[in-house]
Computed example of a mutant assay.
Amino acid sequence: MKVLDLRCQKDHAFEGWFGGEADFQDQLQRGLLQCPLCGDAQVRKVLSAPRIQRAARDPAGGAAQESAVPVAAAPAAPAAAASLQAAWLQWARKIAAQTENVGPRFADEARRMHYGEAPERAIRGQASLAETVELLDEGIAVLPLALPDGATDTLQ
């Protein structure tokens, strides 16, 4: 298993687990990788801290034990930025779990609920700027949120 530190064009840091370099390159070329924060598919590898396994002697003279030794430290995102990213991703997943995804039918479904033609429930989906303005003009409360696919799916 190969663990890679990745970044998108907006410089969001995240981790990817791959079977090897060929697996990473294959997924990258097929457009299967995307930033879990913004959905950007322009993903690149960044320096990461590799770990080398070496045998270490027990100070008491016992058998050799395996220990991991970090070799180099990669520049990490500031702790506050990483914490904010993690909190946003957790919040986005919570929103996704508590809402029904109606996809491109969002504006129609919001109207149906507003006019009593469908049961009221928490929904999410896609709407154009024009559709969003029309909904607001009709007195239908909507809140535009950027929830990329990576934030609504379970990451493996």
Rank of each mutant, 00 (worst) to 15 (best):
32 L>V: 04
33 L>V: 00
34 Q>L: 06
38 C>Y: 03
38 C>L: 05
40 D>P: 04
42 Q>W: 01
42 Q>T: 10
44 R>K: 13
45 K>W: 02
45 K>L: 08
47 L>I: 03
48 S>T: 08
49 A>V: 06
49 A>D: 12
50 P>T: 04
52 I>L: 15
52 I>M: 15
53 Q>H: 14
56 A>I: 10
57 R>L: 14
57 R>E: 13
59 P>G: 08
61 G>V: 01
63 A>L: 12
67 S>E: 15
67 S>N: 09
67 S>I: 14
67 S>R: 15
69 V>S: 11
69 V>N: 09
71 V>H: 00
71 V>M: 11
72 A>R: 10
73 A>W: 09
73 A>L: 13
75 P>N: 13
80 A>E: 15
80 A>Q: 14
80 A>S: 15
81 A>N: 01
81 A>V: 11
82 A>V: 05
82 A>Q: 13
85 Q>M: 09
87 A>C: 07
89 L>R: 08
90 Q>P: 01
91 W>S: 09
93 R>K: 07
94 K>N: 08
101 N>L: 07
105 R>D: 06
105 R>P: 05
106 F>S: 05
106 F>W: 03
107 A>Q: 01
108 D>S: 09
108 D>Y: 01
109 E>D: 08
109 E>N: 03
110 A>C: 08
110 A>V: 02
111 R>H: 05
111 R>D: 00
112 R>A: 13
112 R>C: 02
113 M>L: 00
